[in-house]
Amino acid sequence: MDWLHHLGERVMVVYPQTLAVKIGTILNLVQRGERPAFWFRKWSSAYHEQKYLNEESIKLLNYLHCITKDNCYWLNSPSDLDSNNKLIQPLLAEEAGLNIAQQHIVSAKSELLKIINSDKKFITKSFGTAIYANGDDDTTLFAYTQMIDDALLAKMPETFYPSLVQQYIDKEFEIRTFYLDGECFSMAIFSQENDKTKVDFRHYDNAMPNRNEPICLPREVEERLRRFASAIGSNCGSFDLIQDKTGQIYFVEFNPLGQFGMVSHPCGYMLEKRIAQLLKSKNQCNTQYERIAKHDESLLPLCVMRLEQVSDGGYELCYHSDFYESDYAIVRSLHKPIDLLG
């Protein structure tokens, strides 16, 4: 955001709560033949209390994407919202020539025992992204990647919800690669010395922080990542990879709309700057928008009658162009007026 400002670009930021007001301006702009660049960052699909409004707003976004995608540049798009399936991704990755870990879906202990009878080690994780949810008893559920060991087997019921079981890769280090429109920015995460973080480094360990170091992937691996991204139809996101002890690189997952701050800062990749430059170069919109001073929180479609106060928990944005990750925090904690951004 600050970079776009510095580069002299005009930006309109759209959040779920402002889509209603701004969509008209955007459609107007596009219909006049302007070709702004879009950056679809994140979209809370749970902003509105009324569930159908969330769905409606996504439909609206999809429509906007559909009518503009041939003429305007989109960095990430609403279609990225549903490309995050850990079962389908490996299939595409394999097709792209990447190594993947062997995987199974099981729902009974007996099946599981058959698989892990071989000498390989296995882990289990969620099919999708991390799950945050409230359990029945006021506990919070959070999906971690877990090693399947005797302790876990002992606790395990005979049958359970179908779960993903994956061959454990004896890793030398993990790799995060931020993929930006064809370019790869990779960071190796060295956590092995530390048993606590061995399986998934989301179990943050503060005492002995992991080392995060910039690396270059072999050319052919980058080529395969590119192939994968185009197969899944995304031009920006974050790859999770693992290099095993023999030097082989395995595909783990791809998160479109992934974070880039954690890769950019320790490695000095200046991704904020690069993204801003990319958007600037793709922007072909000359009209200055009018500032939209205030939006009406209670806007509802014409066909709807009931009005209710909406909660203020949602975020994030999209559009002609950007948002730099920490800006949301700034907007919030420092009360930077949204108008300054838009």
């Binding site: 510095h6 030097g247 000095g268 904020e272």
Partner: peptide, 25 residues
């Protein structure tokens, strides 16, 4: 001191990017 990484594999660390620093102003 964890200054080095020992490996039998070839790893291409990127020693240049670490030198980049710029602020948008």
């Amino acid at each position: 001191n964890n200054f080095v990484f020992i490996s039998k594999n070839d790893i291409t660390f990127n020693y240049n990017s670490i030198k980049n620093f710029d602020t948008p102003n």
